[in-house]
Design a protein around this nucleic acid. Structure first.
Lengths: 121, 121
DNA sequence: TTCTTATTTCGTCGATTGGCGAAATATAGC
DNA sequence: GCTATATTTCGCCAATCGACGAAATAAGAA
């Protein structure tokens, strides 16, 4: 019972739904998600922790970033079923569409003020 | 977005999940549900209002009782999908099993201290 | 019409939650 | 080893939520 309600609770916040819809597009780091959602890093980190704790998403270090991605092959069938459900939902939602467009253009190098590496000439 | 998170939120409380699992068994009134859940009538009434507000359940008057039942043919596909999901889940859960057994024996006439009608002799 | 009763609504309380900024942590780069 | 930085954790605040009892409502029964 706790497991199921915990899964539903994780999906009951709009920002966490937005995060999942964004991660359907591609892997993202905290600073990119925070940039798109326009939330504090700490808030995003907390939301991601909730989702990671349900195993709906996975994290891994990539340089100085921590990347988050969906976990569609989660061992838990309930997680898989809910992720499949949310995958089908909200694809015509205006906010989701805007977030998706943002995901395609968001750039962590710009957010973190990283100078592009010089091309060898 | 609001619609989806509202549905997930409705399912994120253990007692509301228990109510839905009980209603899979049969239609019930507030006093029967309160008896099984061991909650105040007002609390049960509020939980039922949350569920009715999502259209996952329907109510109708039956004498002095208000009966509640599942709405598996809800107009909203998302409601139908979630009800189908919860139908498959938790069927081995100890609490759900106990609640189901209680549903089969709970009797509103006993709860409300109604004297059975005398049989014609 | 009045009385009784199942239910709903209201108000209060303590617990939980989502937001933020600050502090702490992990670790890449030099 | 030190510095810089992305992220996580902590602490606080306001809003929300689930529990209860009391009051209000709806309506059945007499």
């Amino acid at each position: 019972m706790r497991r199921e309600t915990k899964l539903f609770k994780a999906l009951s916040d709009p920002n966490r739904i937005r995060i999942i819809k964004m991660l359907q597009e591609r892997e993202l780091c905290v600073c990119e998600i925070a940039d798109i959602l326009d939330l504090a890093y700490s808030t995003v980190s907390k939301h991601l922790a909730v989702l990671r704790d349900t195993e709906m998403i996975l994290d891994r270090k990539a340089g100085k970033w921590v990347n988050y991605r969906l976990n569609p092959d989660a061992g838990d069938e309930q997680v898989r079923e809910l992720l499949a459900l949310v995958q089908q939902w909200l694809n015509d939602d205006a906010t989701v569409r805007a977030d998706r467009a943002a995901v395609r253009s968001v750039d962590r190098d710009i957010i973190c003020n990283i100078t592009p590496k010089k091309e060898n000439t």
